[in-house]
Design a protein around this nucleic acid. Structure first.
Lengths: 145, 145
DNA sequence: CTTGACCTTCCCCCAAGGGGAAAGGTCTAG
DNA sequence: CTAGACCTTTCCCCTTGGGGGAAGGTCAAG
């Protein structure tokens, strides 16, 4: 079958699902491939590398829109690496913010859990377990959500 | 206007949007409120506390489905705190997992960024910046995603 | 009366696909 | 030739937590 890979085989080689590949195509991350006489998608071996790239990139937290743009730059002839560099730096910053938030959240949850054992029961509107911090805790002011 | 608060006023007092309140109602987190003759939603003051509770709970990472269940238990007469306790413990575990993942992701991104300066340019299919780890890095085996 | 600020319901949109239906293609065994 | 197994196609609905906007009803002030 040297006419090309069908979508299932491509999916297997790239390590994702046929569904995801169609989805990427619909989102214009991948160009529409050649079709067989009966309408099956047929891919060349370069598609495997392309998809591995997409997989790596999503694994780095890039969105499909960002990946599409990177690939478009690449297809425009220029190496997209400068762009990628900026993107990744922005991702790193965003990630640090998210990490901070999650750490704060974990602290909050653990405090709730720790307070569990020494709080009087049944005094709050729904559950003191959650409503506890609301009399004065420094939690209301989420800075950007 | 002692007939009750209209949705906008309630939203202001609870610190969220009218849209969100309607959404919670549609998701059966909140019971459908009384209506004025002209169809406006009218809320009693207890709704403010309810919504503050919901806000705290979402802020703790509970889903609306979970919050609905908590409130349902509460309306069933029992304090839902045991349930909440279990829920929060599960959230804490889940959160730790998520944190680990994000830390690993950040490490990966930072490695990509660090490698940026010493990698030869223009050798990869799209961008070596991203494709770098794929020749042997220990990144393929994500343990549960 | 008109303006403006509210309110109502309605449907579509986001990410990144998953699930499944209904239909048709391809390959092998009998 | 046909059945069965397995593949592919397109189609639409589902997820989370709402946002955006349309089209129209209400209410108070000027």
């Amino acid at each position: 079958m040297k006419g090309g890979l069908k979508i299932g085989e491509l999916a297997r080689q790239a390590g994702l699902t046929a569904r995801a590949i169609r989805f990427y195509e619909r989102k214009r991350v991948l160009p529409p491939p050649r079709r067989s006489a009966s309408g099956y998608r047929l891919y060349g071996p370069e598609a495997v590398e392309m998809l591995r790239f997409v997989k790596q990139a999503t694994g780095l937290g890039l969105t499909l829109a960002e990946i599409r743009e990177i690939i478009a730059i690449r297809r425009g002839g220029r190496p997209p690496c400068d762009h990628v560099h900026q993107l990744l730096r922005a991702k790193a910053v965003e990630l640090d913010r998210k990490l901070e938030d999650l750490v704060a959240l974990r602290r909050r949850i653990r405090q709730s859990l720790a307070a569990w054992s020494r709080r009087p029961r049944g005094a709050a509107a729904v559950c003191h377990h959650i409503e506890g911090p609301h009399r004065g805790g420094g939690l209301q002011g989420r800075r950007d959500a």
